[in-house]
Design a binder for these strands. Structure first.
Lengths: 331, 331
DNA sequence: CTGAAAGCGCTTACAG
DNA sequence: CTGAAAGCGCTTACAG
């Protein structure tokens, strides 16, 4: 069967402890012993049993990343960066999907506590995260995105300021009748809506509730459907703020189906700057941020938390920037 | 500290084995004992230590899924379905990225052998997968996509037939000068190119090597760049077969930048039917398949392999269908 | 610089 | 239906 440290030790004529020392570099081993052990390791094709190591050490070298919906290009890009960030720190990533269910989030917490993962990076969907409660025996957790009360560490982007800036750009370009697509109870939607409201308010534009367009889901197909239904009942707006780039794609498609073109008839802005946003026709004006830096930061914060559970709660804000492309034009 | 089976047993006044029986339902336990144990479990907020269980059982309940690049919407959708498939079978998914490096694939194999995962679903990039060698002590692996020699189980779609059908559609619509974008050494590219060649050959169209357009990468931005460069040097083709939907998005963008429209000037087909393909302008003609079924099948095959390492190698072909949308038109 | 012993938390034969 | 013992493979004090 498979070789264990014991087998390796026997072959090299040393004790298991010495093999462990060679493997982990904890203590200095004499060059001669080391080479004998290394020879045995190679000859027996030794692979450590990580479950055993995890049981002994209380660490598995694995972290969990939980996103609401992996199919969203935004989630996919973030996963990529989390895997990269983890790999750079010798960690592996277990991936989970919450699909927005608080129940699923609770389950993830307990899984983390079951110690197959050392910690959890969670993208909570609602502002009031029922899963992350004070007083409960929490595993190390980092929230990505904003939540109501910072009970645990979090890394986020100032969504309110970003959307305020995006909406401000549209206003500066002369648009007044500005819709926003993707409103709903999700934390992200609430914050971005707040940014939209602020921008309109400071330009003294009255908020027209009929221009707040909710979506069932945030896939482009959902957005196309919702916005198409909106266009059937209302005059087209002059510009549209979309909660995400993916929603923007759906909105553009719905506009096109109604014989309207972007940006000639309607200006569109998105959020996230996913890869495809640069090549769509037209290319999207959107909010960009350094996703790798975001992921690196979240993993670092998680590692600090694992190393020091009693440390004070950390909150890190990652900067964003507005990228102006072809989907917006002056009126 | 955290409660163990021992603590639970002590509180319930039974042996650890009885607690284990209640937890795993291996043997029947008397209702009275069961309720006492359950009370203790709840009172002590017991969470099993999965590392210990994994060490004992040789199973962790985790499988690894390795894709070349998680950022690709196709990979993202597949990951979503793998996580769903795994969840339905009580499994969790560790996600890995090979970025097309054979070295990384080898590393993954040994990680699987290190037993933090019970098995591995791997999307190999090249046809000659150096990592998956005969004679080597392999962990349970299922390859998704075609490889040269079926040394291990695999689940795939008949890429050759699918692209032959796609290309055939373009020919039937009267196109003759048909380019293909995304050629290269990757297994997927080779197979899809073979389908393209077959279709042209049976229509007695001579293959024009200048119409085989390689791409650095398979992101839409890569495709836009490559195809833009192509358009700078050549007459536009009548139609374009794109290796993936994502490549198609880039090609459409490049055509647009050159003042050409789809499908009026050029017809376009993609492959994968990712979510956004239905809402792009124009919506893409592409190859669709049941991704959830594909993922379920791959997980089932992997589970069979784990259960029975000596069983004969399995190969499952998942059906596809051509979806005709607005990106193609008769000439 | 190295060895022998103990134990992480679980479950599986082995007995009753 | 339940208990006492052993062991999965590793590493950490404890001795030398």
């Amino acid at each position: 069967m498979r070789a264990t440290v014991r087998d390796v030790a026997a072959r090299a004529g040393v004790s298991p402890k010495t093999v462990s020392n060679v493997l982990n570099g904890t203590f200095r081993v004499s060059p001669d012993t080391r080479s004998r052990v290394e020879e045995a390791l190679a000859a027996l094709d030794y692979v450590p049993n990580l479950s055993a190591r995890g049981l002994r050490n209380g660490r598995t070298g694995m972290i969990a990343v939980a996103m609401a919906d992996l199919r969203m290009p935004y989630s996919a890009e973030m996963c990529h960066h989390f895997v990269e960030a983890a790999a750079g720190r010798g960690l592996h990533v277990q991936i989970e999907e919450t699909a927005g269910s608080g129940e699923r989030e609770v389950e993830l917490m307990s899984r983390a506590r079951a110690q197959l993962v050392d910690g959890l990076i969670l993208n909570p969907v609602r502002l009031e995260t029922t899963a992350v409660q004070r007083d409960v025996n929490l595993p190390p957790v980092v929230l990505i995105g904003e939540v109501d009360q910072p009970i645990v560490d979090h890394v986020w982007i100032d969504n309110v300021a970003a959307v305020r800036e995006l909406t401000g750009l549209l206003i500066d370009q002369g648009h007044r009748r500005i819709a926003i697509v993707g409103t709903g109870p999700m934390a992200t939607a609430q914050l971005r809506l707040a940014g939209y409201r602020k921008a309109l308010r400071s330009a003294e534009i009255k908020i027209d509730r009929s221009l707040l367009v909710p979506c069932e889901g945030w896939h482009s197909t959902d957005a196309a459907e919702s916005f198409s239904a909106f266009l059937d009942r209302h005059e087209p707006p002059e510009a549209v703020v979309c909660m995400t780039d993916t929603i923007a794609f759906g909105v553009i498609s719905a506009l096109h189906a109604h014989g309207l073109s972007v940006p000639d008839d309607v200006s569109i802005v998105g959020y996230d700057n996913i890869t495809d946003s640069a090549t769509t026709v037209p290319a999207l004006t959107t909010i960009d941020f350094d996703k790798q830096r975001f992921a690196d930061t979240a993993v670092d914060v998680l590692l600090s938390r694992i190393a020091n559970p009693a440390a004070p709660i950390m909150s890190v804000t990652i900067p964003y920037r507005l990228i102006e492309r072809a989907s917006t034009a002056t009126r």
